[in-house]
Design a protein around this nucleic acid. Structure first.
Lengths: 363, 363
DNA sequence: TTGTACGCGTTATCAA
DNA sequence: TTGATAACGCGTACAA
C-alpha cells in the first residue's frame, strides 16, 4: 500500500518473510522468472503489494553493473533545438525502459572532455553525446570504453557510432530553395572560420555546391561568422552584413536561432522579408512555425535521430551484436517552405517537396 | 591515468594494495578526511592517479542511502519556459554538487502521480516538482515521505515546501501596464474555466483586480480559454476572440507561448501591434526578445526560483533544520516592456520599472 | 593515525 | 521449483 522509503525501507527479506518463501524466490518473481509455481508467485505478489515493496535500484546496480540510465550531453537546454532533442531522446529512452540524465556542456571544450571521464559516467550505462567544441584533434579522447553514440558530424571518423544528417546535401537543398526563387546574392550566417569537419563547414560546403551548380559566383563578403549559434549572434552577424553595404537578397542561417536573430534585425530595419531578403534556417524548431514571418527551414528528422541514437546505444549496452563495427547513420531531412521565403503563398503552411535521403554505412 | 570501467574496474582495494595502506585509508583520502599524514595522503593520491580509480557510486549509494541526484519533474522540455527552467535548475544543482534527473509528465495527471511513487524516486534524494494537472484534490498524494519542493502555485496548501511567485500581483502589474497605455478592452488568453487555485486562476484574478482599480468593467467576452499553454492554443484562442467580433485593444497572454501564438495570428491578419492591439505575455522566455515585434512580458526571476528550490530541497535532504515547517517562498517579478506594448519606443529594449516584491512566510 | 570486519539489498551459483 | 550463501564496492564502528 504505502510507500516506505525513509525510515526502514521494506526489502526483499521482508517480502520473503511475509510470503513464507526465500529471498531468492522473491527476486525471481520481481524479475519475471518463468519457472515459478503460480500459487507461489501469487503469494509473493500479494506480499509485495501489502508491504509496498519496491526494488532498491542501488543494490541492483551494484550487483548487476547496470543502472538503466543513459546520459545525454548537449550544449544547453535553453537552445530550443537541444531542448526539443532532449524531449525526443527522453521519450525514446522511456519507451525502451531507460531513464535519461542530461548534462550541459555549454559547448565548452573542457566540459565536453569532462563528460567523457567524469564521475557521472558511473551513473550511466552509456552516453548520447552532441559535442560542439571538440574537434578532430580530440578524436583520441572519444575512444572511450563505454557505450557511446555521437550526434552531429563534428568529429568525423571518431571511434564510435554516429547519428547525423547529410549536412552537405541539406544545406545544398536549402540554398537551392533560395536559388529557385531567383535569389542570387545569398548570404550565409554562422560560418566557422578555419573549421573543416564540423556542421558549419559542411553546411557552408553545401551552400557553395548549390551556388556552383547554379553558376552563381561565391562571394566571401556574403559569409557571416558566428561562433555560437544563438539568436544574439545571428542578429549580430546580420547587422554586420547589412552595415558592410554588400548587396543581399537572401540569407541562409546555418541554424534556426541564427536565422531568427537575423529576422529580428531585418524587422527592426523595416526590411521586407521575403520581398527584399528571403530567409531560411535549419533545424525546424517549433518557434519557426510562429515567428513573423514564419521561417522556412530544414527539418532534420529529430525523432528519427533520437530513436536511432537510443537504439544504437542500447545495442552496445546489451552487447547484442558483440563485434559490430562502428556505424554512421544518416537521418532524413526535408525542406519546409514558409513565409520567410515563399511569402503570402505560405500563409497556410505547406510542406515543400521532400528532398531527404537516408542511408547507413559502415565507417 | 586511463579510466577502466568495463572489464575489471579498479576498486579501493586495488588502490590500497598499490599504496600499501588499508582500504579504510583510501576511503578517508577520497572523502577528504582531515587527520591523515601528508605522506600517506600523497601515496594514496598517487595510486589513485596511476590506476585511474574512480569511486563506485552504486556502492556508495547503497551504503549511504544517498545518490547525489535530484529529480526535476516538468511538463515538457519542448516548452521553452521549462527548458530554460531546467537549465537554471541544473546549474544551481551543479554548483551544489548535485546531479539532476529530468522527468517529463506531459502535464498528464496520471503521470504526475507516477512521479511521486515511481521507481525513479529510488534514484534520487529529492524532487523539484512542477505539477500542472494535479489539483487541490490530489493534496494527499503530495504528502510524500521524501524531500520535495513544489514549483508554481497549483496546489496551494500542499504539505511541502513551495517556491512560487506572486501570480496575482504580477498579473495585476501586467494588466496595469496595458491600462497605463490607455487600453480599456483588454482580452486575456489562457484562462481555465472553473479552476480556483492554479496559476491561471490567480493570474486572471490579478487581471480583474487591475481592471477594478481602474474602474474598467470586466467583460467575460474578453476571456479566452486555453487548457494547455502552448503557442498553438494561444493562436486558437486569439483567433476565436477575433472571430467573435468583440472589441479588443490589448491582449494579456497568461504565458509567453500563448502571447506568441496570439502575436502570430495578429500578424497573419495584418493587425498592427501595438497600434491596434497591444500584447503582453508572462515568463520572459528568451524568444520574447527576438519576436517581431518583441514581446513585453513579466519576468518571474527564473534563476532565483531555481536556486531557491534547490537550496530548500538540499536543506530537507541534509535535514539541516530537522523540524522546520513547510515554507512558501515568493520570488520577485519584473515587468519587461518591449515593442508589443511600447512600440518604437522600445526598439532599443529597455527594462521598465521593477515592480517586483518578494517575501517568505510560513504556510 | 590506520586497520579489521561487518552490512547495505540485490543477483547469481549451486544444491537440494 | 526453491533455498542457502557468496559476492558486488564502499562506509563505518570499533579496535589497535
Amino acid at each position: 500500500m504505502s510507500t516506505a522509503k525513509r525510515g526502514g525501507a521494506v526489502t526483499m527479506h521482508d517480502v520473503a518473510a511475509r510470503a513464507g518463501v526465500s529471498i531468492k524466490t522473491v527476486s525471481n518473481v520481481v524479475n519475471g522468472y518463468q519457472h515459478i509455481r503460480a500459487e507461489t508467485r501469487q503469494r509473493v505478489e500479494a506480499a509485495i503489494a501489502d508491504l509496498g515493496y519496491q526494488v532498491n535500484m542501488s543494490a541492483r546496480t551494484l550487483r548487476t553493473g547496470r543502472t538503466g540510465i543513459i546520459g545525454l550531453a548537449v550544449p544547453e537546454l535553453s537552445l530550443p533545438y537541444f531542448a526539443e532533442l532532449a524531449d525526443s531522446v527522453i521519450r525514446a529512452a522511456e519507451s525502451r525502459g531507460l531513464t535519461v540524465l542530461i548534462e550541459q556542456t555549454g559547448a565548452v571544450r573542457e566540459r565536453e572532455l569532462d563528460v567523457l571521464t567524469g564521475q557521472r559516467r558511473h551513473l550511466t550505462d552509456g552516453l548520447v553525446f552532441s559535442p560542439l567544441a571538440l574537434g578532430p584533434a580530440d578524436s583520441a579522447a572519444l575512444a572511450v570504453d563505454f557505450p557511446m553514440v555521437l550526434l552531429g558530424e563534428r568529429i568525423f571518423g571518431g571511434p564510435a557510432d554516429h547519428v547525423t544528417m547529410n549536412n552537405v546535401e541539406a544545406a545544398r537543398a536549402a540554398t537551392q530553395h533560395l536559388l529557385d526563387l531567383g535569389r542570387r546574392r545569398i548570404a550565409v550566417i554562422g560560418a566557422h572560420e578555419g573549421e573543416t569537419m564540423g556542421s558549419a563547414a559542411l553546411r557552408v560546403q553545401g551552400y557553395r555546391l548549390a551556388l556552383d551548380d547554379a553558376g552563381v559566383p561565391f562571394d566571401p563578403a556574403l559569409v557571416g561568422e558566428a561562433g555560437l549559434w544563438h539568436r544574439a549572434t545571428g542578429a549580430e552577424a546580420m547587422h554586420r552584413l547589412l552595415e558592410s553595404g554588400v548587396e543581399i537578397d537572401a540569407v541562409f542561417g546555418l541554424n534556426d536561432a541564427l536565422a531568427l536573430g537575423a529576422l529580428h534585425v531585418l524587422h527592426a530595419r523595416r526590411i521586407d522579408v521575403p520581398a527584399s531578403i528571403a530567409v531560411i534556417g535549419f533545424d525546424n524548431i517549433e518557434e519557426t512555425g510562429y515567428s513573423s514571418p514564419t521561417l522556412s527551414t530544414v527539418s532534420p528528422g529529430r525523432e528519427q535521430i533520437a530513436t536511432t541514437a537510443v537504439d544504437l546505444l542500447l545495442s552496445r549496452i546489451e552487447d547484442s551484436e558483440p563485434d559490430r563495427p562502428f556505424v554512421r547513420v544518416i537521418a532524413d531531412f526535408e525542406i519546409v517552405g514558409r513565409e520567410s521565403t515563399l511569402g503570402e503563398a505560405a500563409a497556410v503552411p505547406l510542406t515543400a517537396a521532400a528532398t531527404g535521403r537516408s542511408g547507413r554505412d559502415g565507417s
